[in-house]
Design a protein around this nucleic acid. Structure first.
Lengths: 99, 99
DNA sequence: TTGACATATCGGAAAATCCCGATATATATT
DNA sequence: AATATATATCGGGATTTTCCGATATGTCAA
């Protein structure tokens, strides 16, 4: 777990917003309902809600993934992103005791 | 507590390093011994150890203070900085549950 | 294979951050 | 008041980040 990389990933309003939305996919991305939420939410849904371009959202999600805050799952032509709660828990403990 | 401001403050190797040093002033800043550590460590001590210029360290400490991660105490011509553990605890809990 | 759709990557302009040297301010000493 | 010391602020070049449009890649359907 790269502290600095994580904090950089968290240093952006849009990325924080996305992470927050992913806490409750059912509520925040109802349009995806029919496809289920097991693997997370696909890029297009997030892009629509974020109001940023497709390329920007894709890059932001890659940034979040590289830092370990989310995981990506490719299913057909879609890539689903979901939170990696283990990293959040580890970060919380790190701040509590190590930083 | 401004999340984004805190994460930005934590997104820098030198600032993370300084915060870490301030966890144990006695060990990391022994030269200050005769003046005590009650109010924290003065800018000059931190600057020396960080190997950055005085202006840069002063600005970094101001950044950390504005985010609430440290507090500053002016005593004579010195400004002492110490960690604000309440903010660290609050941030840890925030990450655990709210972000 | 061709076309449609979802996502990733590339190139870059604008804004922010990094970190410096120079200078200003505040305090203490003589 | 003049000098010395500690810190803060200013101006700016270099680097990084932000976010875009254009383009490439990958997958499915006809």
């Amino acid at each position: 777990m790269d502290q600095l990389e994580i904090f950089k990933a968290l240093s952006n309003k849009s990325r924080l917003q996305i992470l927050n939305w992913l806490k409750d996919p059912e509520k925040n991305f109802p349009d995806q309902g029919q496809y289920g939420y097991d693997n997370g939410v696909c890029v297009g849904q997030i892009q629509q809600k974020a109001g940023l371009t497709q390329s920007t959202v894709s890059e932001y999600l890659t940034t979040l993934q590289r830092s370990g805050l989310v995981t990506a799952t490719r299913v057909g032509q879609w890539t689903y992103y979901r939170r990696n709660e283990e990293t959040f828990a580890a970060l919380s403990k790190l701040i509590e005791s190590d930083i």
